[in-house]
């Protein structure tokens, strides 16, 4: 059993949005929508403000509220890597999953179904990295299996301080940010 995760080094990310463009191209994301995006978070005050640039997307949570609230089973946890996916044919577009996601990571595709990041599972199944990871010019994004202690993501999480988004929401995100 594998548990896919993404680790993003916020000390290397420059917010160039290559990951956003790569995702839109790879997954034919409709114009005006995005499956991943850049957030700049500034906290503190002059003269010691701190800036963190993050590439954000669906966190593929271990406890995904979008899956438990889905009335048709369209939102589900895939056996391959525990990735959270949506069966487009089962989705009725009720938008409960959009309201249930504390990260607002989902949107309604113009064709009527809930859409979001898939960790490019079609690429991962072929042994490739997700599109966003593969194009990152600063190599700040890493993808791998948390259950494999020798994987790059496991080693990075073991050796670097990191955080997830809204851990207090109890969703156990699988996108980690190195600080």
């Amino acid at each position: 059993m594998s548990r896919f995760a993404m680790v993003i080094d916020t000390r290397r990310c420059v917010g160039c949005q290559d990951c956003v463009v790569a995702c839109k191209t790879e997954n034919s994301v409709p114009q005006g929508y995005c499956r991943d995006w850049i957030v700049e978070e500034v906290h503190g005050a002059f003269p010691t403000p701190h800036l963190e640039i993050r590439s954000e997307r669906c966190n593929h949570c271990a406890e995904p509220p979008c899956v438990s609230c889905c009335p048709t089973g369209a939102s589900h946890v895939h056996d391959f890597g525990g990735v959270v996916l949506v069966h487009h044919d089962l989705c009725i577009g009720c938008k409960a999953c959009l309201a249930a996601c504390p990260y607002d990571a989902r949107f309604i595709h113009p064709d009527g179904y809930a859409d979001k990041c898939t960790f490019c599972i079609h690429r991962v199944a072929k042994g490739l990295d997700p599109a966003c990871v593969s194009v990152c010019p600063t190599h700040c994004m890493h993808f791998g299996d948390l259950d494999d202690p020798t994987s790059e993501v496991s080693r990075l999480l073991a050796s670097r301080t990191h955080h997830t988004l809204l851990p207090e929401a109890g969703t156990q995100p699988r996108v980690f940010y190195l600080t």
């Binding site: 995005c34 995006w37 957030v39 978070e41 503190g44 938008k95 309201a99 949107f107 309604i108």
Partner: peptide
């Protein structure tokens, strides 16, 4: 103070969720 700036602009989601009318 914490200031967030995002490039996300998904319809019905941003600037705040409004999926149900």
């Amino acid at each position: 103070m914490i200031e967030l700036t995002t490039t996300r602009h998904n319809p019905l989601i941003d600037p705040s969720l409004h999926v149900w009318e």
